[in-house]
């Protein structure tokens, strides 16, 4: 599903690489935590997968696409295969819950019939059935993150990238969000989640890829956040 081959990313403003010869392979349907301190390269890792940026050296494959090499016009095709969830939800405040989710389909040209059919289904999946007409500010943080997840998942992506999705949520709500991500993972979608949340990583016992100063320092199945961290 994802393959990084000795990927290095240098930024002009920094003397050390943000990612340094990183090689990681993630299979279809895996659930992987990407951990590490601030500045370890987690965000760069996700940005490169999304082709927000290109690596200085190395190759990145998402399914059959060589992300670093694809022409600009094919980038939308890559991004349609990837769903994204962020710490700050990034919902459109002037649109209802239903419109927020529908937006992701409309902008890629899906027909109104498809939108009308799929949006209620995904809202039900994330536990927001009956709330399609609410505005984002009328929802709790957890519910807003569910809307963001619904929007990321509505196009049935092969890969879901989550960048600190529980960073703004209390422990109980975080747990609910993790259950939701787990349910999405069970549908066959690969989930890659960057996090600082020890308790979540420890309780889930999934594969952990740890970065430090741009290097992979640990890649372990069924792992915890780390002793003494």
């Amino acid at each position: 599903m994802i393959r990084l081959e000795r990927v290095t990313k240098m930024y002009k403003t920094s003397t050390r690489p943000a990612l340094d010869r990183v090689s990681v392979e993630v299979d279809k349907g895996e659930f992987v935590f990407l951990i590490g301190p601030s500045g370890s390269g987690k965000s760069t890792f996700l940005r490169l997968l999304l082709r927000e940026d290109v690596p200085t050296r190395g190759n990145i494959f998402v399914t059959d696409l060589n992300v670093a090499k694809i022409p600009r016009r094919k980038v939308p095709r890559l991004r349609q295969r990837i769903g994204c969830v962020f710490q700050d939800f990034r919902l459109l405040s002037n649109k209802t819950v239903g419109e927020n989710v529908a937006f992701a389909l409309e902008v890629i040209g899906k027909s109104p019939t498809t939108v009308r059919k799929v949006v209620p289904e995904v809202l039900e999946l994330v536990g927001l059935d009956g709330k399609a007409d609410r505005m984002p500010h009328e929802l709790s943080g957890g519910e807003q993150q569910r809307v963001a997840i619904a929007r990321a998942f509505v196009n049935r992506p092969l890969l879901l990238l989550a960048d600190e999705p529980t960073g703004n949520l209390d422990p109980d709500t975080s747990q609910d969000i993790m259950l939701l991500l787990e349910r999405i993972n069970r549908t066959g979608t690969t989930v890659l989640m960057a996090t600082h949340d020890h308790s979540i990583v420890d309780s889930m016992r999934r594969r952990v890829v740890e970065l430090d100063l741009g290097r992979v320092v640990r890649d372990e199945a069924h792992a915890v956040y780390g002793v003494g961290r």
Binding site: L50, R72, R73, V75, P76, R77, L78, R79, Q80, R81, I82, G83, C84, R90, L92, S93, F103, A104, V107, I108, G109, R151, A152, N155
Partner: peptide
């Protein structure tokens, strides 16, 4: 924010 979401979900540049 809209533009950011559009890019992330794979809307074409033209769209």
């Amino acid at each position: 924010t809209e533009v950011g979401v559009m890019r992330l979900v794979g809307a074409t540049r033209w769209y």
